[in-house]
């Protein structure tokens, strides 16, 4: 049996690395007495595959994980057991059985939506808006990764194609930014990097970002985007398209 989990990495878990998260998830599944299937070999490990690693310091509202089980279990019972076994850092939102053979999550996910806050004190919404317009109007955007001493310099990459849309809106004295970024094997952008580029275009200084959250992971096909799991699938798409309508 193969199951797909949609879960949240909460505020309490935002400083977990991907490895911490994987360990925490394995323990959660063990506490829930999920009959995990294990890999063969010298050091067997459970067959779990995450959609995408989430950076340290970022929360995730809709994260996904596929788990292989060694026998069939009632999915409703499973969902309840896992929900109850979750530590404060994680929250189970949905669980579904999926076909044994199917494209892996990491191969199908190709878009992520992020949200974060910046202080509205020194930065004006209008400047941010202008920055967004100028940046998205550019035909090319070049990003030069930081050159680390003693390491080979990494060549600059053109990243305009990685940014789908960006929005800004006021929120309780803060500015809320949302952006949809393409995830590809070739290059990925972090929301903080986009913010830094945006500041250059808007002519303001990039303040520290707060409460960075990956709100969703999507599969984009034929101009439509949807989350890899049913349920509020429709909402997710509306969410996504609203952003895109900006």
């Amino acid at each position: 049996m193969r199951i797909r989990l949609r879960y949240e990495k909460t505020e309490a878990g935002r400083f977990l690395s991907h490895l911490d998260l994987a360990r925490t998830m394995e323990r959660t599944l063990r506490r829930a007495e999920v009959p995990l299937a294990f890999s063969e070999g010298f050091n067997p490990h459970p067959k779990m595959s995450f959609a995408s690693a989430l950076a340290v310091g970022i929360t995730g509202e809709n994260e996904f994980l596929d788990v292989e089980l060694r026998r069939r279990v009632n999915p409703e019972k499973l969902e309840q057991a896992i929900r109850e076994a979750m530590p404060p850092a994680l929250k189970l939102k949905q669980l579904e059985e999926i076909p044994m053979q199917g494209k892996s999550l990491s191969a199908s996910i190709n878009l992520a939506v992020y949200r974060f806050l910046v202080s509205a004190g020194r930065i004006h919404e209008a400047d941010v808006r202008a920055g967004i317009d100028r940046m998205l109007a550019a035909a090319e955007l070049w990003r030069q990764p930081k050159i680390k001493p003693g390491k080979k310099p990494i060549p600059a990459k053109e990243v305009r194609g990685l940014i789908r849309w960006i929005t800004v809106s006021p929120e309780n004295g803060w500015l809320k930014l949302e952006m949809a970024l393409v995830m590809s094997n070739m290059a990925q952008l972090r929301p903080q990097e986009v913010w830094a580029m945006l500041a250059d275009f808007g002519g303001f200084e990039a303040d520290a970002v707060r409460q960075v959250c990956r709100t969703g992971l999507y599969i984009e096909e034929d101009g439509k985007a949807y989350m890899p799991m049913g349920g509020d699938h429709r909402d997710a798409q509306r969410d996504f398209n609203e952003g895109g309508g900006h």
Binding site: R27, T28, L29, R30, R31
Partner: peptide, 8 residues
């Protein structure tokens, strides 16, 4: 311990 921790 197994039930309450999930350690391997």
């Amino acid at each position: 311990l197994k039930k309450h921790t999930g350690h391997n």
